[in-house]
Write a protein that binds this DNA or RNA. Structure first.
Length: 322
DNA sequence: AATACGTGGCG
DNA sequence: TCGCCAAGTAT
């Protein structure tokens, strides 16, 4: 079975590897290390996040603060979230922290064991197994998926079918380089909004390249993003400000100012307004300040607040206070 | 299967 | 400017 596919795609494998040697991004720091923990950090950060953002703002500071799995496990959740501040999808950080605390020494090596850890699904488990432990398994991320849709000329595929194709095209002889090459090809050549087929090593065998590659896969229709209105009240007393730590799923663990659905008292002083765009709604908030003491909340100085993990919306409010 | 979940880069 | 969407997971 495996040798059949190897034979079937050997020409593809050869040209892909040649392309990777000259055009690949071999200098990415998580490709230069063999440390499974560092590779794990990179894989979690890179979920739904551009390489540029992780590379320039988050990967190195996080690893400097938490150089090892043990350092992460022994930190506080506030510290971990603070290093994640601005990266978004904060559940990733809390899951990684929880996983670190559950591990005695190092990450497990098998796809199956990796998938049992919080925050590691099928895609990340394959990536860690492939990149940290050189396990001969294919990866399947957004880049690889797009290549598969186009190469095999499919408009829509279920997850199962995508994994089947990933295994079909996989180069068992050069698993590590093949996987990295596929990521780079999807990121640099076979791009979502720009298929540069004339630069693609898989061009001759690609179905969609012969027609309209940008229409593979079929684009999904998306609903309009709803707007949510809120009033945010900065409650202040003696140069300190009231904050509470969020406990519901949205921005869980982060600290923030007090929010109301809308239309609180009118005698309050207005500080300003803000718009924050989230993935599933847009927040339009008016921000007020009120002098009082309410022992429901914890109070912090501006200096202390800046050391707490905050959402981008709350950071905008902090800047109104400066 | 569909939806919630952040933020910012880029065309 | 504005919408797309980027190395997905959990429920």
């Amino acid at each position: 079975m495996a040798s059949f596919y190897l034979l079937k795609h050997s020409a593809v494998h050869t040209t892909l590897l040649q392309w990777y040697e000259t055009e690949g991004r071999q200098e990415l720091p998580w490709r230069l290390t063999r440390d499974p923990y560092s590779i794990w950090v990179s894989e979690i950060m890179l979920q739904q996040t551009q390489v540029k953002t992780v590379l320039e703002r988050f990967y190195f500071p996080f690893l400097e603060r938490f150089p090892t799995l043990q350092d992460l496990a022994h930190a506080s959740e506030d510290e971990v979230l603070k290093m994640w501040e601005g990266l978004g999808y904060y559940t990733r950080a809390r899951h990684m922290y929880r996983a670190a605390q559950s591990l005695q020494h190092e990450l497990p090596q098998s796809v199956h064991e990796l998938m049992r850890l919080p925050g590691i699904g099928r895609s990340t488990a394959h990536a860690i197994a492939a990149f940290a432990y050189q396990t001969p398994v294919p990866i399947l991320d957004a880049n690889v998926k797009r290549i598969l849709y186009r190469f095999f000329g499919k408009k829509r595929l279920a997850e199962k079918a995508l994994w089947d194709l990933a295994y079909q095209l996989f180069d068992e002889e050069h698993p590590f380089e093949y996987n990295q090459a596929m990521m780079d090809l999807g990121s640099l050549v076979c791009r979502a909004r720009d298929a540069r087929c004339h630069h693609c090593p898989l061009h001759s065998g690609c179905t969609a390249a012969k027609t309209d590659p940008l229409n593979f896969p079929e684009k999904k229709q998306k609903r309009a993003v709803p707007i949510r209105r809120k009033d945010i009240v900065v409650i202040t007393c003696k140069n300190r400000y009231a904050l509470k730590q969020r406990t519901s799923r949205f921005l869980k663990g982060l600290w923030g100012f007090i929010e109301y659905e809308t239309n609180t008292c009118s005698d309050e002083k207005k500080l300003g307004a803000l718009i924050q765009k989230y993935s599933h709604f847009h927040l339009h908030a008016d921000v007020y300040i009120r002098h009082e003491y309410d022992d429901t909340y914890d109070y912090f100085t501006l200096e202390e607040i800046c050391k707490l993990p905050l959402s981008q919306a709350d950071i905008k409010i902090v800047n109104m206070l400066k």
